[in-house]
Design a protein around this nucleic acid. Sequence first.
DNA 1: AGAACTCAAGTGTGATCACAAACACCGACC
DNA 2: GGTCGGTGTTTGTGATCACACTTGAGTTCT
Lengths: 240, 240
Amino acid sequence: MTITPYIPDIDAGDLPLEERAYLRLRQALMEGVFSPGAKLSIRRVAEALGTSPMPARTALRRLATEQAVDALPSGTVLVPRLTRAAFQEVSAIRAELEPLAIRLAATRLDARTLDALATVVAEHDAARAAGKPEVFLQKDREFLFGLYRQAGAPMLFSMIEALWLRRGPLFWDARWILMGRPPAAAHRHDQMLAALRRGAGDVAAQELKVEIERMTAFLLEALPFEGQAAAAPRQARARR
Amino acid sequence: MTITPYIPDIDAGDLPLEERAYLRLRQALMEGVFSPGAKLSIRRVAEALGTSPMPARTALRRLATEQAVDALPSGTVLVPRLTRAAFQEVSAIRAELEPLAIRLAATRLDARTLDALATVVAEHDAARAAGKPEVFLQKDREFLFGLYRQAGAPMLFSMIEALWLRRGPLFWDARWILMGRPPAAAHRHDQMLAALRRGAGDVAAQELKVEIERMTAFLLEALPFEGQAAAAPRQARARR
DNA sequence: AGAACTCAAGTGTGATCACAAACACCGACC
DNA sequence: GGTCGGTGTTTGTGATCACACTTGAGTTCT
């Protein structure tokens, strides 16, 4: 069965084709366009992108480097299927890095940014009330990354992005479950904003850490993880 | 002046040329073979690697993706020159991730591994006494990464590697300064091992965090960041 | 009928080529 | 002397092609 996935376009400026291919695939991955376990063949992706295989090849290799996709020994690329252990690992790293980003951002936030973020939280809650999981998840991302961007730490930012990227396919499956959580337990974004307004970066960071750990525990219960997967990284390949 | 740096070979098994190119460049970068600010042209790297430009191109793009090198808008790749802020950022991330790795590893260490690591610490001290900075730094890496590998967290491991990669060129310049530090203040590896032997992973993690923060503070004082490096730019051996 | 084999289509890899933009160098000009 | 402009080179990009390996379906043999 050869599926040719639809890959959403982006508002590409004059970027090189390779860069555009990379960004488009990245976006598609984070939005859960590909189902876990799907095979991403170079030629087929190129076809879907409307380019020659070359840009698709480099883009896929780059994604494999940051472990956003898995690469088989043969070089074939698969959409990762997070195991229980891998999910726990991603969450543990998030629980360290994202609070760090909050602490760094706390010293640089101004009132205007805080107000903008409060709006995002309101939209987030509205999306939950309206039963729109896509908007719900998007606003969640928007709030947190809006905060992380203020940290002024580009490397940290891209590392966090990579973690979310890897988590993407899983969260797409979990979107209904996540939105259905009791609001009281669901998010602490209001409390975080309040802490940040009074300059208590450490408190906000701790709130976030708790939120991540709580959601992780919840999903470990709620989600049916499959036994095996998360292909091993490329090793020596048999060649005779 | 076209310098064609010597790039050390690796014990490549059967890997594709692109993968080998990536690993070789990565290794060279971490060992400080390239001086900060150097321009890495695709064709020249390919020549030094003995391949066509193609594998060199993909390898450089991959390194740029994980921010191990800097990419100009034109696509040209430069060896990063760490600014003061970037060095602080890398250190702050290390201070979160590496203790996490220690905590994860603590529950999985066995006596044999601990003994092997104790040997590495001994060699580390011997290298300091003998005044061999290359061995000194190498043993330091060997000890810590030997520990991190035991964490059983592949994604965390490769993120830490990426941080060291970025820090590589800087540390090469700092090798004499680092080795000259008073031994008492220099490393807490013995204390870490002792803590791990009695199962106190949190204590070991805290030791490491303190070590990282202390070394960062030390280097922020000792290294001339904005101007040019103290040591004469290490010249790569001309090849041809 | 079940298993091993065969073969053709599909796959990733890497070299080569064409092209446009960026760059460096050197002379002419103010 | 310093600045500007033109020109030849070098650079990154992307398409195309050849090749070896993998894969899977169809066939044949036991």
